[in-house]
């Protein structure tokens, strides 16, 4: 229990610290690297909660794809982040005020939140009992590929149509210069090379 608690505080602190570094680092590439660190730590937090599937998805999708994409964008675009951050301090009080108001509003709304007791009886996909021995990867698999297989398949069709649409609306066939190996092999020096005798100081 103690070790778990320690681990939680370690990962949580690291997440918050790297989150703060993301917005304060001077070099945007460092920001993205801190973002990746934050993702890893939150994945560890998910692991502590017993949600191993979400943890791995976080690493595979966010670290593997999204963060790397960010990195590319940051490296390819020449954005002067220092200039963007100018005047940050001037707006700090007003920003803090807005944040505070939002926080109070959220507390008010969530504090008074009550879910209809009957609605919990109708939940179609309750979390599996710990005693059932079902890991949450299996439980999610059951939901997606068995319970909601229809929705899953239709979502696939929607993506297919999106792909067709993107191709139909943007693909233009341009005349492409293809490589003709036979032509290249048959090419002879006398077809393309001309030897000229150039007098000194004259040019061609």
């Amino acid at each position: 229990m103690v070790i778990q608690g320690l681990a939680f505080y370690l990962f949580a602190l690291m997440t918050v610290a790297s989150g703060a570094m993301v917005i304060t680092a001077r070099n945007p590439v460092h920001s993205v690297l801190f973002l990746i660190l934050a993702f890893f730590n939150s994945a560890a937090l998910f692991l502590l909660m017993g949600a191993e599937f979400v943890a791995f998805i976080l690493i595979i999708v966010y670290v593997g794809a999204v963060a790397v994409l960010f990195l590319f964008v940051v490296m390819m675009l020449d954005i002067d982040f220092a200039r963007l951050r100018e005047g940050f301090l001037n707006y700090l009080p007003i920003g803090a005020l807005v944040g505070l108001i939002l926080l109070v509003e959220l507390l008010l709304v969530l504090g008074a939140w009550a879910i209809l007791p009957e609605s919990e009886l109708r939940v179609t996909a309750p979390a599996p009992e710990a005693a059932s021995g079902l890991t949450n990867t299996e439980a999610l698999g059951n939901l997606i590929y068995t319970e909601y297989v229809y929705a899953f398949q239709v979502a696939g069709l929607v993506l297919l149509v999106a792909m067709i649409g993107a191709i139909v609306l943007t693909l233009r066939s341009r005349p492409v210069r293809r490589q003709r190996i036979a032509d290249q092999v048959n090419r002879r020096p006398e077809d393309v090379l001309v030897v000229r005798k150039v007098d000194p100081g004259e040019g061609i």
Binding site: A151, V154, A155, V158, V161, A162, G165, L169
Partner: peptide, 13 residues
């Protein structure tokens, strides 16, 4: 919703 989206997306295109 999924049926609606499949239909609408094709229609937009």
């Amino acid at each position: 919703y999924l049926g609606l989206e499949l239909q609408s997306l094709s229609l937009y295109v």
